[in-house]
C-alpha cells in the first residue's frame, strides 16, 4: 500500500477539489436566497445586487409568521411528514418485500400491475372523483392515502430487498417466525440505509404536499404549510384574466416583495432540510453488514 501513497494523495486531491467546486456552485444561490430574505424591500429595488444588506430586517419573517393559520399549517405538515412517512414505508416495504420473494405465486403479475401504473398516468379529474367518493375531501387522509406509495418506490425498494440473501430469511423461519415476523425482525433492520433513504423521499414528498391539498382541501385550517405560504405570496397585481387584466380590487393585501418570497422559501425548506444531517450517519459504509454481525 505504501508504494501507492503519492498516487493516493493525488487522487484525493483531485477528488476533494472537484467536490469543493460542486459544493461551491450551490452555495451562492442559497446564500443569496437567505440574504435577500433579511433585506428591506426598498433596498432590494434600489440596488441591483445585494451581497450584504445595509440594514437587516426581520419584517418578512414577521409578516409570514404572524398569519393566524401558521401554527395549524405547521401541524398538518408535520403530521403528514411523520404519520404519512411511516405508513408509506410500511405499505411500500410490505409490498416490495412480498414481490421480492421469488417463491411467491402471482409475483410477476403483481409486478406488472405495479409497472403499468408507472407508465399510465390518469388525469386529475378521475382521482378527484375517487377521493370525493371515499368521503376524504377536507380530510387529512386525502393528502396521505392517494400518495401512500408509487410504482417507482415499490420497484426500487424491491431492488434493495433483492440483494438480501434468502438464506437469512429461511434461518429465521426455522426459528418459528412467519413472513411478517421475518419482514419486521430481519429484513427491515437489514435494509436500514435504504429505509432511511426512502423515508427521506417520502417525508420530503409529504412536506411539499401542495397540489393535492389545493384540490382536496377547502378548509383553510387543514392547509399544509406550502399551500398557506403560496397563498400569502399570491400577487394581486398579476391576477385575473378577464377584462380588467391586472386587478387589485379593493383588496387590502400587500404585493409580495422578492424579499418576502425568499423568506417563504427559507421557512418552507429549513425544517425538512435539517432532518438530513441527522440521517446521514445511516449512510455510513457497511451499516448493513454490521447489523447482521451484531
Amino acid at each position: 500500500m505504501h508504494e501507492r501513497g503519492w498516487k493516493n494523495g493525488i487522487f484525493s486531491l483531485i477528488n476533494n477539489t472537484l467536490l469543493l467546486l460542486i459544493g461551491l456552485a450551490t452555495v451562492f444561490p442559497i446564500y443569496y436566497t437567505v440574504i435577500l430574505s433579511f433585506t428591506d424591500p426598498v433596498e432590494y429595488y434600489q440596488r441591483s445586487l445585494i451581497l450584504w444588506p445595509r440594514d437587516w430586517t426581520l419584517d418578512a419573517y414577521k409578516h409570514l409568521l404572524s398569519n393566524g393559520l401558521f401554527v395549524s399549517s405547521i401541524s398538518v405538515s408535520v403530521f403528514l411528514a411523520t404519520v404519512g412517512t411511516a405508513l408509506s414505508l410500511l405499505v411500500t416495504g410490505g409490498m416490495a418485500y412480498a414481490v421480492s420473494r421469488k417463491r411467491l405465486r402471482f409475483r410477476k403479475a403483481m409486478m406488472i400491475m405495479v409497472l403499468i401504473t408507472f407508465l399510465f398516468t390518469p388525469g386529475l379529474v378521475p382521482l378527484y372523483l375517487v377521493v370525493r367518493n371515499l368521503g376524504l375531501i377536507d380530510s387529512v387522509w386525502s393528502l396521505i392515502l392517494p400518495s401512500l406509495t408509487s410504482a417507482w418506490y415499490v420497484l426500487l425498494m424491491k431492488g434493495f430487498f433483492d440483494s438480501i440473501p434468502e438464506s437469512l430469511e429461511e434461518a429465521a423461519m426455522i426459528d418459528g417466525c412467519n413472513d411478517i415476523g421475518v419482514f419486521w425482525r430481519i429484513i427491515l433492520p437489514l435494509s436500514l440505509p435504504a429505509l432511511v433513504a426512502f423515508g427521506l423521499f417520502f417525508a420530503v414528498g409529504y412536506w411539499n404536499t401542495y397540489f393535492n391539498a389545493l384540490m382536496f382541501i377547502n378548509d383553510q385550517k387543514m392547509w399544509p404549510l406550502q399551500v398557506l405560504l403560496q397563498n400569502m405570496l399570491v400577487d394581486p397585481t398579476t391576477m385575473g384574466s378577464g377584462s380588467g387584466g391586472g386587478f387589485a380590487f379593493h383588496v387590502n393585501r400587500q404585493v409580495p416583495t422578492e424579499t418576502l418570497k425568499m423568506a417563504a422559501v427559507v421557512i418552507a425548506t429549513i425544517p425538512i432540510m435539517l432532518v438530513y444531517p441527522f440521517l446521514q450517519k445511516h449512510f455510513a459504509k457497511g451499516a448493513m453488514v454490521g447489523s447482521v454481525k451484531g
Binding site: V91, R103, R105
Partner: peptide, 30 residues
Amino acid sequence: DVVRDKYLYVLALPGILFFIIFKYIPITNL
C-alpha cells in the same frame, strides 16, 4: 403455495389495494 405464503400476501395487500383504488380506478378514465 398461496396458503404457505399467506403472510406475504397480507404484507402486499395494502399496497395492492392502494394501486387498485388510487391508480386503476382512475386509469379506466383513459
